[in-house]
């Protein structure tokens, strides 16, 4: 599809015009992103506090993380943010085909991220590194009795992040579907913008999660 459908977007009746709706929607999305930052941030705060209380135990846990997988995943997500931004860029320019490629690439990157995560998790399960009380201290030869706390944090933080990756991917699939249907044009692409901002948040959280879990420990 090389041409963009130029039908006018019908904006809701309580707005003055389509642009009014667009800026309002954007503000709504930013407000929602603040809640995401605060929610993940709470986990970070808890992690910092316990890291300070049990530094050696956290170091022991962090040794189990493979920095190469974390590093690769960081590059994957950064690249996916780039393609997401490009997806919006090309819709704004009216280049539907390039937009399609970039949105698809973003979804693919998300999938790669999840696959790497799957390997990380299964490897840990294989070695017995379960969260909380399910971690058998004797089996893994842990030096610290509460090593399960570290892995509780690890699985909760990466798991919650992973859920957001999957949600983001689903949203991008939906937006891609609508794009292929011709719903968007340079004057109306609000859902893509919104999903894009959500996806960047997913990247943002990982930008902090990566050093926190893989490096600082």
């Amino acid at each position: 599809m090389s041409t963009v459908n130029s039908h006018e977007h019908h904006y809701a009746h309580h707005f003055k015009n389509a642009d009014h709706e667009f800026v309002t929607s954007k503000q709504g999305i930013w407000l929602f992103m603040v809640t995401e930052i605060l929610m993940f941030g709470g986990l970070f705060v808890a992690f910092f506090i316990y890291h300070a209380m049990y530094p050696e135990m956290f170091a022991e846990g962090a040794k189990q993380l493979d920095w190469r997988m974390g590093f690769t995943n960081t590059l994957v997500l950064i690249f996916s943010s780039f393609t997401m931004a490009l997806g919006i860029h090309y819709i704004q320019k009216g280049d539907a085909r390039k937009a399609t490629w970039n949105l698809s690439a973003t979804i693919l990157c998300g999938a790669i991220f999840m696959v790497i995560k799957y390997f990380e998790y299964t490897h840990k399960f294989h070695l017995g590194f379960f969260p909380g009380k399910y971690l058998d201290v004797a089996r893994v030869g842990a030096e610290h009795a509460n090593l399960g706390l570290y892995f509780g944090f690890y699985y909760c933080m990466t798991g919650l992040h992973g859920i957001h990756v999957l949600t983001g991917m689903s949203l991008i699939v939906w937006v891609l579907f609508r794009h292929l249907r011709g719903d968007f044009n340079p004057h109306y692409y609000t859902p893509v913008e919104g999903v894009g901002i959500f996806w960047h948040i997913v990247d943002l959280v990982w930008i902090f999660l990566f050093p926190l879990l893989y490096l600082v420990g």
Partner: peptide
Amino acid sequence: NRFIFALGFFFL
């Protein structure tokens, strides 16, 4: 929008 986003980090 910038202020809104920054506010979140402040309260964290």
